[in-house]
């Protein structure tokens, strides 16, 4: 995403440090893939950013991709599309998994890749071309990131959709109404179904910020 704004809070940094330590022990190859799945506005992008910075400090080049860039229907048309096709079409199948797989394969093969990139100022889809040659770690964040192939480490971020509602209102990313609420409920179900696959589970609601499953 271009022109996204993240707010880094203490709990994000703490969580990132814990996850980074775990991954550092596990990482055993030159092309390592981390997936961050979880609820809307749960801090996936923020965690991805912080992990990227930590890898950079260790001299390990990493690249973040956000699955929000890989929707089949572009942002400005999505709402109308969803209204037309109904709530049953909301979910995993809304993403271009073929293109996501192609991106992951380009990373694994150290090749160049052109991917979609949503500009949050214009809500239009740009394209970004990147060279994966020297990139050793790929960080994939997105609601359904565990659906990707070749993932080595899976992080799940918890949040109830009620809180999501409050968060979204705050960040002003989406127009809120009952239809949007139904979408969130549907997404919430699909997101939660991935939870069992997680290697690491983060729940900022708990007294302990995060723990290992």
């Amino acid at each position: 995403m271009l022109n996204d704004v993240i707010t880094i809070k203490e709990h994000h940094t703490q969580a990132a440090e814990l996850v980074f330590e775990k991954i550092s022990q596990k990482i055993d190859k030159k092309k390592y893939i981390i997936a961050i799945a979880g609820e809307v506005s749960s801090g996936k992008t923020t965690l991805a950013y912080l992990l990227g910075r930590m890898f950079k400090i260790k001299g390990i080049p990493s690249k973040s991709i956000d699955l929000v860039d890989f929707y089949k229907v572009p942002p400005l048309e999505r709402r109308a599309w969803r209204q037309k096709h109904g709530i049953s079409e909301v979910g995993v199948e809304e993403y271009d998994w073929e293109l996501i797989e192609k991106t992951i394969q380009s990373f694994l093969d150290s090749k160049k890749m052109t991917m979609p990139q949503v500009d949050l100022h214009t809500d239009l889809v740009d394209e970004v071309t990147t060279d994966f040659k020297d990139i050793e770690v790929l960080i994939i964040s997105g609601l359904y990131a565990f659906h990707c192939e070749h993932i080595d480490y899976k992080i799940f971020m918890e949040l109830t959709y009620r809180e999501t509602y409050e968060n979204q209102k705050y960040t002003g990313k989406e127009v809120m109404d009952s239809f949007r609420n139904k979408i969130l409920e549907k997404e919430h179900e699909a997101v939660q179904s991935q939870k069992k696959m997680a290697d690491y589970y983060i729940d900022f609601n708990l007294f302990l910020n995060s723990y290992h499953l």
Partner: peptide, 23 residues
């Protein structure tokens, strides 16, 4: 238009392609 776009984490230069129609 295609233009350079620095990734501040990788410090590599990606190429960004955007359509200025409608901007």
């Amino acid at each position: 238009s295609t233009m350079p776009c620095v990734d501040l984490v990788t410090e590599q230069i990606d190429q960004l392609t955007t359509n200025f129609k409608g901007i």
